[in-house]
């Protein structure tokens, strides 16, 4: 039962990664690509975390997986913000 739930979560996470990758390759500009990519980073990795945590041998492993997800969440949000900012800067006409 736990095994099945774990596999479902991992599979759902992989769907987000595939969709995010497709979006990264197919979308026309930086902002829409970021939109696709961050779904994989945030939700996709979160689903992977839930799936793997259900299989974890101990609480300590599950908590470490959670910490990995949280760190990636904060880091990728910031990176996305920075890339979007740079993309907007590049679009705007140069200053004085």
């Amino acid at each position: 039962m736990l095994e099945l739930a774990s596999s479902l979560f991992v599979a759902a996470g992989l769907v987000f990664f595939v969709a995010g990758t497709a979006g990264l390759l197919r979308f026309p500009d930086a902002l829409t690509r970021l939109h696709a990519l961050t779904k994989a980073d945030n939700l996709g990795l979160g689903l992977l975390f839930v799936g793997l945590a259900l299989r974890a041998a101990s609480w300590s492993v599950a908590v470490r997986l959670l910490v990995v997800w949280l760190l990636v969440l904060f880091a990728s949000t910031t990176a996305c913000h920075l890339v979007a900012r740079a993309a907007l800067e590049a679009r705007r006409p140069p200053r004085g």
């Binding site: 904060f74 880091a75 949000t77 910031t78 913000h81 920075l82 900012r85 200053r95």
Partner: peptide
Amino acid sequence: DLRAEAPTGPVLAALVSQL
């Protein structure tokens, strides 16, 4: 004022202060 090393804004600064 335009030569500022990294005009990266408050979000990165907040993350870095935690990281």
